[in-house]
Design a protein around this nucleic acid. Sequence first.
DNA 1: GCCGCAATATTGGTCTTACCGCTTTGAGCT
DNA 2: AGCTCAAAGCGGTAAGACCAATATTGCGGC
Lengths: 259, 259
Amino acid sequence: MSDAGIDSSQPNGRHEEAALSAPSPSRRTDPDARRSDDVVRNLLRRIREGSLRTGDKLPNERDLATEFGVSRPVIREAISHLTGRGVVSPRGGSGSTVTAVAPERAQEALVLYLRDNRLDYRSIHEVRELIESHAAGVAAVRASPADVEALQQSMRTLRESPGHLAAAADADVAFHSIITRITGNEVIELILSSLHTSLVTVRRHNLALPSAYKEAVRSHQAILDAIVEGDETGARVAMSAHLSAVFQYWQETNQPEVP
Amino acid sequence: MSDAGIDSSQPNGRHEEAALSAPSPSRRTDPDARRSDDVVRNLLRRIREGSLRTGDKLPNERDLATEFGVSRPVIREAISHLTGRGVVSPRGGSGSTVTAVAPERAQEALVLYLRDNRLDYRSIHEVRELIESHAAGVAAVRASPADVEALQQSMRTLRESPGHLAAAADADVAFHSIITRITGNEVIELILSSLHTSLVTVRRHNLALPSAYKEAVRSHQAILDAIVEGDETGARVAMSAHLSAVFQYWQETNQPEVP
DNA sequence: GCCGCAATATTGGTCTTACCGCTTTGAGCT
DNA sequence: AGCTCAAAGCGGTAAGACCAATATTGCGGC
């Protein structure tokens, strides 16, 4: 890792180094090498290594500009880049501060990745079934009365809204989200919510099928029953069966198109 | 969703607005509302809704500037932001193009999220054991001779480098990565590589302990044996035991500090 | 002496202009 | 027709200036 740009050499004026036999490393040669990238790397390194910690203020843009020997626009560009990544957040008037990456940011990145790379549903399904079945099992052990009530509420909504696609989809998502939340594991929550977002198409498609809709109601009830009884294995198996059924329905009734 | 800024009003030159009685919707009022944010939102919407698809070129910066009624720096800032998110990549000389979000980007976001939110190892471990045990089972069924050879190679390296922390850690990572790759599931690969990155501290800490190091060698061998024999359940169980042991070692010998 | 408020300094946000170097393209030459 | 090379197009960078909001300071009143 070169990590160039940390030294404050190259004060400002571009150096001339006349006729370096090499491919002339002077000025700019590679169009994909922006000056701001050096700044980005450097700041990220400072953050990673702790000299800039979450909550700290970055030096002001003008100082950074002189420090790196570049102009302010370059610094601003670097900060914009970092803002896009969610690691700093500038505030007009006061400085820019290093912030913790929000879960939404990570989730969004995951969703976009899944979307852009058109991953086959099989891969997503494999992970989802694995994690969510586990979550159901944990929920069976840990669910509080309030949790159970919330689950029952979403069941009622789901049951009472056949034909109401939007409502049914919401109730479906709610049911699964509640179970996820019961685990109290943020990593699980993050991953599953990302997968759920990516599967919105699948969900809508399936719930529009009467048979799949009925299956969903039946399966959700089975899962809920197992959770109420504290039957860890039962909940896990029921969830697994449910998700497999969802996958099945999608595959049988759908064009090879992907979520 | 306001989505302001799409109209090309406010042509360019700063208007004088002599004593506008109204709350003066002109200029800027909120320091956290950058003009570039409007552009970002708008472009993201175009991408999401398909009017800008992956691989397409963005209009050039000057045109965007006049279209949005802002100056070029604002457009550049918006593009920097999107570049940070990994959804566009500008190329000097030619225009900026919409790109697919790279897995590394999603992985990085996950890693930073895990790091910044100081999630307890327990949550990470729970997910890791779940997924990686599954992966080991799949690997037992699918591993090709080349895969097995690669695994044996990493075993040899691990075994031959006691005291060589860096080498041992690399071999450890390699072993787990190979198993992950055998699943052929990109989602699994993404998640586990993120978790592995987050656990670099744990890995280093543990491998420095002679007992944990020996355990690692033993467990890896057991996992490999099960994979070679095509014993799905055996591989899963062995992996699960191994990861639990790792977790155990960490908890017993470590300050409450988190990865 | 302490507190509140106004003047001021600081800082990010935006605009403008200008120039550089790479990429692309197309016209002219071979 | 194919090739070459110059012009046009485009992003990258610089420098200077001004605005609005925040943060700071210091003065005056209580």
